[in-house]
Design a protein around this nucleic acid. Structure first.
Length: 241
DNA sequence: TACATATGATCAT
DNA sequence: TGATCCTATGTAA
């Protein structure tokens, strides 16, 4: 393991020759557990990208933070928000400040309900808050609120238990679907049309994200875009109440 | 060559 | 709320 870009040089040297014992994800946080109680914490953030090669790796770009050659292949990591070594207790302190992960079957949706109930913040902002729920992200927050017919401005505590549980269920369903496909697709299969999904532009696989000004796929009302929680959000003012 | 852009999160104020 | 960090890529100049 090396760090062509240099900023993870020390960490890479410490991991060299060590055995990887397991990996885990919590929301968008990735934990690589190495022998000796060392965790490599990776978070891709907005710009981070992995590249992998099973054979014939290309040379790493100069910005590559982490270059890892194993017997089974080569992995490069560039642009992450986090790439750091930590102890198990430090890993735990990250876990402690993150809400339930919809992709974790042991996750407790009631924690999500409690988090929403505590706040008058718009539900659209709370969905990005990692303390309330892990790993939804800006695309899914817009899509999930559309799918459940919820206006993003509604104070999160105005959602009743049934609405929250339905929102959680939709979140689980959509994130699993995305995980299975390796990409975000929220439009129901029946609405995708005859075209092959892979060939569709991204905005054709989504209901509202990135579709500001275009007609709602369900009611033709123009999709509205604004900022919420510091990020752009789109919604249908007619379908979402 | 320069600039715009991107699916995120943290910290200071 | 705003500033800041992080990199590759595509388009414009």
């Amino acid at each position: 393991m090396t760090s062509p870009q240099g900023r993870f040089a020390e960490g890479a040297a410490r991991l060299n020759g060590r055995r990887l014992e397991g990996t885990e994800a919590l929301g968008k946080h990735l934990f690589y557990r190495w022998e000796g109680g060392l965790t490599l914490h990776v978070h891709l953030g907005l710009f981070g990208k992995f590249k992998t090669y099973s054979t014939d790796p290309r040379p790493p770009t100069p910005g590559t933070r982490l270059a890892w050659q194993a017997e089974t292949g080569t992995l490069y990591l560039a642009g992450p928000t986090a790439c750091e070594l930590m102890s198990v207790p430090e890993e735990q302190s990250i876990r402690d400040r993150i809400g339930p992960d919809p992709l974790d079957r042991r996750a407790d949706p009631d924690q999500f309900f409690q988090a929403l109930g505590r706040r008058s913040t718009p539900v659209g902002a709370v969905l990005l808050d990692q303390k309330a729920v892990a790993g939804i992200g800006n695309v899914y927050r817009a899509e999930l609120l559309f799918l459940r017919g919820i206006a993003p401005h509604r104070p999160s505590r105005s959602l009743d238990r049934d609405e929250v549980m339905a929102l959680w269920g939709e979140t689980v369903r959509q994130l699993r679907r995305g995980e299975r496909r390796g990409r975000i697709v929220t439009v129901e299969p029946a609405e995708l049309g005859a075209a092959r999904e892979r060939e569709l532009p991204r905005s054709e696989r989504l209901y509202v994200y990135g579709r500001a000004g275009r007609p709602c796929r369900r009611c033709a009302t123009p999709i509205v875009a604004e900022e919420m929680g510091g990020r752009p959000i789109s919604y249908c003012p007619s379908c979402q109440r």
